[in-house]
């Protein structure tokens, strides 16, 4: 797809064909599991996952060796081994968190590369990522980047902030003008999705003794983040989206929380089942959350039991993600019940 130089591969390691890369460098996976000299890379891989799980962007302490030829491959190796460990542990939450953190790391590079006037190759490469992976034709125009409105909309609708709305953008002649930062930001979520789908698509290697310890530690780590939720397939898209937002640790606006809670209560779930869903929210506070859900359920306060808002209402809050399966229902509670 994209041909990669060493620089690029270190910045965007998720673009590499893992097996191929190890091969080219003259390594096998087996060696990483057994060779004591390579243990440091396995350690780094674990650290990389750990910092991602904690919501940090992986930024290895500047190793004293300033030799690019050594550092860059090390970074790639630690990424590739991290994936091996993640696959072996099989924890989805960790994969999600890892993908998101890696996406934010890559976003930083993208942002820098888009304006690296000194280095045309980096710039072209960044533009290529937009085009080849996300089908966005992005062009430089003065101090800005311009992208076609239709491309812009397909990505910008993932944001809830007003400033991403087309009406609040510089639009001219079918194009939207973005700063470098905004251009990179525009694809963060998809970048995360792309990375996690690459990880999910990768084969799970068989367990080696040398990885066992780390994999075990990952399972311990994952326990901290496990959210027990009952996501049944009959949830409508708006509800799935809200859960996804929460799972990604993003902020779900008040209305979204209200919608989600009323929906799940309506489906007969209990406060105990619902409250943990909000665990990943940036402003999570168990007491407050439980209190709020209780209020909605009518257990406390005014004794009014709220019901799930209508599709119209949800739509007006920009939280409807209707698919054909929603056809003509007027309330998410009807989802899956009504047939044509």
């Amino acid at each position: 797809m994209i041909s990669l130089g060493q620089d690029e591969i270190a910045k965007y390691p998720f673009l590499a064909e893992a097996g191929q890369y190890l091969n080219d460098k003259g390594f096998t996976l087996e060696q990483f599991a057994t060779d004591p000299d390579l243990k440091i890379i396995v350690d780094k891989a674990y650290e990389r996952i750990e910092s991602a799980a904690e919501g940090k962007i992986y930024n290895p302490k500047a190793d004293n060796s300033s030799d690019k030829d050594i550092i860059l491959p090390l970074n790639v190796f630690s990424f590739l081994i991290a994936i091996v460990l993640l696959k072996l542990s099989g924890h989805n939450t960790l994969i999600n968190r890892f993908s998101l953190a890696e996406a934010r790391r890559a976003e930083k590079f993208l942002e820098r590369d888009l304006v690296s006037d000194s280095n045309k190759t980096s710039e072209e490469f960044a533009i290529k990522i937009f085009r080849d992976i996300f089908s966005i034709t992005i062009k430089k125009a003065g101090g800005y980047f311009v992208i076609p409105i239709s491309d812009y909309l397909q990505h910008a609708v993932n944001f809830h902030e007003l400033e991403w709305k087309l009406v609040n953008r510089h639009v001219e002649n079918g194009m939207v003008f973005l700063s470098t930062h905004e251009s990179a930001r525009l694809i963060r979520k998809e970048l995360g999705g792309y990375i996690s789908s690459r990880i999910r698509a990768a084969n799970t290697p068989s367990m080696s003794k040398g990885f066992e310890d780390k994999v075990h530690k990952l399972s311990e780590l994952a326990k901290k983040f496990v959210v027990k939720t009952i996501v049944s397939t009959e949830y409508p898209p708006c509800i799935k989206h809200a859960i996804e937002v929460l799972n990604n640790g993003e902020n779900l606006p008040h209305f979204g929380r209200f919608m989600l809670a009323t929906f799940l209560l309506g489906r007969g779930q209990t406060i105990d089942e619902i409250a943990p869903l909000f665990k990943n929210a940036p402003d999570w506070n168990e007491k407050v959350t439980r209190y709020q859900i209780k209020q909605i359920s009518g257990e406390t306060g005014s004794n009014t039991k709220y019901s799930c808002p209508s599709c119209d209402k949800i739509e007006s809050h920009d939280m409807c993600f209707a698919t054909p399966d929603c056809d003509n229902i007027i309330n998410p509670m009807q989802f899956g019940k009504k047939r044509l």
Binding site: P148, I149, S150, D151, L153, Q154, A156, V157, L162, E163, K165, L166, V167, N168, R169, V171, E315, D318, C320, F321, A322
Partner: peptide, 28 residues
């Protein structure tokens, strides 16, 4: 025959706000 044919409802919603000049920020 426009690139907008591909857009889903949600994206069209944003286009509608643009055309109707709604949800405007004074900063812009």
């Amino acid at each position: 025959n426009s690139p907008y044919n591909q857009l889903g409802s949600k994206e069209r919603g944003d286009l509608i706000d643009y055309i109707m000049f709604r949800r405007v920020m004074p900063e812009r």
